[in-house]
Amino acid sequence: MSLLNAHSIEIDSALTLSQAEVGCEFQIKALSSQVCQQLREIGFCEEMRIRKISNGRNLICTLCGTRLALSKKLAEHITVAPLN
């Protein structure tokens, strides 16, 4: 598979954390917008593994063994890709 194809597949499979399925593990691909600066400061960075625990107005996820509650709005700015 060419590099170009692999990149296209990755883009296709990317979704926001608020869209992601509960109970699955993902890799953080991108943090968009200025509000995400605060996420970076609390250790939310690209390439990290994240597991989504629940949905809702505030969703819950685990990251590096830490459980975090995030507003759905904020989760819409986090792009993730499923991990096999």
């Binding site: 605060q38 609390i42 830490t66 459980r67 975090l68 995030l70 507003s71 709005k73 904020l74």
Partner: peptide, 10 residues
């Protein structure tokens, strides 16, 4: 407004 973000300690 600062979006809600809270650590849930073990």
């Amino acid at each position: 407004t600062v979006p809600f973000m809270l650590e849930l300690p073990p």
